[in-house]
Design a protein around this nucleic acid. Structure first.
Length: 399
DNA sequence: TCTTGCGGGTAAA
DNA sequence: TTTACCCGCAAGA
């Protein structure tokens, strides 16, 4: 859906709008933040995201570490479950995993994130084309409960320091989010390849999965599917309940549940309400039926009733990269985009370009040759236009 | 002590 | 070539 991002890029730029900071991004979403946003400056995330070297000095890539849980799956005294934030540092994390569950003293277990085609969900950060903003792109749907947020972890640490003889740790949020699923359900929940996590009703069964963001109908203008996250297209727009915490962050406007939002041809979305149009376009069914799902307060979701075999059969017959409803001209942009680019990290003697940091600060169309491959955060080609001073190399090693 | 970001390097697809 | 991931380093909280 690079093209849809591209189009949204222009809208955002034109409208000079920014998103309120999203701490719990989930799904294939993208946000543009004001440069004044401290959380965005710190590349903050509620998820435990570690830095990943993508050999691209302009794009910071982070991948999710998952969540640390009790290996026995015990229930804390308050009825909640332990969901610790994995330490970011490898050594610290190893040390962390040697610790025991504060409740049942069983070993702790790290549930790795496998929400992006079997790999951890990734977040990409980069300075926006506008000098006063940055943007974040998330790829993948977290297939595990939320860990403690960073602020919670820090608060707990400082609390532990203050109170040497403190009672056993009970994460604050776990008090608020009793886990209603059984272990069997967890098994299902933790492996997204068994079910669709874009299933709108899913959060009703797993409160810890609640994301503050609106999920958008998994189809988009180009019909580009996430690499292998090929889930059956769900034509419905759905969103989770507003979070009961981090209200300061979650000031997203109320998202209109209209079929327009599901129509890739509609260009009338309020910009500050567009997060991302995601999705595997599987066949033609997804774009044609765009009935919006209401905020579901009841749930009929049952993994048992959605056998994977059915999904896979659907996937087999799907054509994820077809683009129903996409204006031909827009597709042409991609197919004709010149793939010549300069290496922004290359020494001046090779490229004649400034170094990475200065490039970010002084990015301008003149920094590149007349043929520029413009990519999104994940490295896909999104446009070949030149009016926007956005040097966007591949997310990975620019060579 | 831990987080964060950077970057060299390897391996697999 | 792309992507994931390992490792070490440095700066800073």
């Amino acid at each position: 859906n690079h093209l849809s991002w591209s189009r949204n890029d222009f809208k955002f730029i034109d409208m000079k709008q920014s998103d309120p900071f999203q701490e719990w991004t989930d799904g294939y979403v993208r946000y543009i933040y004001s440069a004044e946003d401290k959380n965005a400056q710190r590349h903050l995330s509620g998820w435990a995201m570690r830095n990943t070297n993508n050999h691209n000095c302009q794009i910071l890539k982070k991948s999710c570490l998952g969540v640390v849980v009790c290996s026995r799956g015990c229930t804390l005294p308050d009825g909640s479950r332990l969901q610790l934030r994995p330490a970011i540092c490898d050594k610290a994390r190893q040390k962390q995993q040697k610790k025991l569950c504060p409740s049942c003293h069983a070993a702790l277990e790290l549930l790795p994130c496998r929400g992006h085609s079997g790999y951890p969900v990734t977040n990409f950060w980069r300075v926006d084309g506008r000098p006063s903003s940055s943007r974040s792109t998330a790829k993948g749907v977290h297939d595990h409960p939320r860990p403690e947020s960073k602020s919670e972890t820090e608060a707990r640490r400082s609390s532990v320091k203050r109170r040497v003889s403190s009672p056993p740790f009970t994460p604050k949020r776990r008090l608020l989010e009793p886990q209603v699923h059984t272990n069997k359900q967890q098994q299902v929940c933790y492996h997204w390849d068994r079910i669709s996590f874009m299933e709108p009703n899913f959060p009703q069964h797993y409160p810890a999965f609640q994301s503050p963001e609106a999920y958008y109908n998994p189809h988009n203008e180009l019909g580009e599917a996430p690499p292998t996250l090929q889930k059956p297209a769900n034509p419905r727009l759905y969103m989770s309940r507003p979070s009961y915490e981090f209200q300061g962050y979650l000031t997203s406007p109320s998202y209109p549940v209209t079929s327009d939002l599901c129509d890739p041809r509609s260009a009338s979305y309020p910009l500050d309400q567009i997060l991302e149009v995601v999705a595997p376009v599987l066949g033609s069914s997804s774009s044609s039926s765009s009935s919006a799902a209401p905020l579901s307060s009841s749930s009929s979701f049952d993994p048992q009733t959605k056998p994977l075999a059915g999904w896979k059969e659907l996937l087999k017959s799907s054509t994820p990269y077809t683009t129903p409803g996409v204006p031909a001209a827009l597709q042409t942009i991609i197919t004709t985009t010149t793939k010549v680019r300069q290496d922004p990290c290359a020494p001046p003697k090779q490229s004649g370009l400034p170094g990475c940091s200065s490039l970010l600060e002084n990015a301008s169309p003149s920094s590149y040759s007349t043929e520029v491959k413009v990519t999104d955060e994940s490295g896909g080609v999104i446009k070949s236009l030149s009016f926007q001073p956005e040097p966007l190399p591949d997310q990975n090693r620019a060579s």
